Simulated assay, not measured.
Amino acid sequence: MSTADVGTAAAPELRILTVCTGNICRSPAAERLLRHRFGAGSGIEVTSAGVGALVGAPIDEPVVRLLTDRGVDTTDFAARALTERIASSSDIVLTATREHRAAVVEVAPALVRRSFTLLELARLVGQVDEADLVARAGDDATPAARLKALAALAARHRVQVPRELDDVADPYRGSPEEYRVAIDAVAEAVDTIADRVLGRA
């Protein structure tokens, strides 16, 4: 089963798209880590794409090793290119860098308030008041409903910060340490977001 096929059996409540350059390092790491944290019953579908995708390629082997060490499934993956259709069918887009976010908004302008860098959203969720989140999502909200509400509220807190606070550096063909730093950054951001959505913050 390819990335694009996941979740077609039942319509998800919320579709997340993660985006990087080649769609073999940062965005698949975010995709698989988000899936791992939210689980099959969350109503959240997560897929990924790349602005310069190595179409059909598997997840880069160093990333596979780092994700496998975390107990994350890396099988049945094939890189795909970002298109207007893929972007527009997403409810929330999480990118590796600001440049990737700009590319998403260029192909799908309606996503301007629903696209973030992964690190940006992780930074902003801490500024959302829980009472506001519950008021928007409801007391008994599903993870999908909480995440949708959380993203909408987080967008109100956007401020300009240094680029390095929002971007995950590309480790492709880099050293093992560069891969570790990149995937650790992705994993930490995913955990911050998921903990808030699941009420574990």
Rank of each mutant, 00 (worst) to 15 (best):
A30I: 04
G22I: 06
V6T: 00
L14N: 01
G43D: 08
A182C: 11
T95W: 02
A151D: 09
Q160N: 02
A131F: 14
F77H: 13
V134I: 15
L150M: 14
H157K: 14
G174D: 07
F77A: 06
C25F: 05
S88C: 12
A135H: 02
A154Q: 08
A78G: 09
L147A: 09
D129S: 14
A151V: 08
V104W: 00
D167G: 03
R15P: 09
T192E: 13
A187P: 01
D132W: 02
T8R: 11
E31D: 09
N23M: 11
R98I: 15
S175D: 13
E130G: 13
H36D: 14
R80Y: 02
G52I: 06
S48D: 02
R156P: 00
T21N: 07
A29F: 08
D184T: 10
G56W: 06
E177Q: 14
V159P: 00
A96N: 01
I24W: 05
D195M: 10
L165N: 04
T47R: 03
V128A: 09
L124P: 03
E164N: 06
R37Y: 11
R114E: 13
E99I: 09
C25K: 05
P12C: 14
D140M: 11
A185N: 05
R123H: 12
R136P: 03
R15I: 14
L153P: 02
R136L: 15
T74Y: 10
R101F: 10
G7K: 07
L150S: 05
A169V: 13
R114C: 13
D91I: 11
V134Y: 00
P62D: 10
Q127L: 14
T142Y: 13
R196K: 15
E61I: 02
D73P: 03
A10Y: 09
H100V: 01
R163G: 03
R146P: 10
F77Y: 15
P58S: 08
G71S: 13
A151T: 02
E130I: 08
S89E: 15
P109I: 11
L118K: 01
D76T: 04
A151L: 11
R80M: 11
L198V: 06
T74L: 13
D69V: 02
T74K: 05
R113T: 13
D60V: 01
P58I: 06
I24P: 03
T95K: 03
D5P: 03
D170G: 01
A135Q: 12
A110P: 00
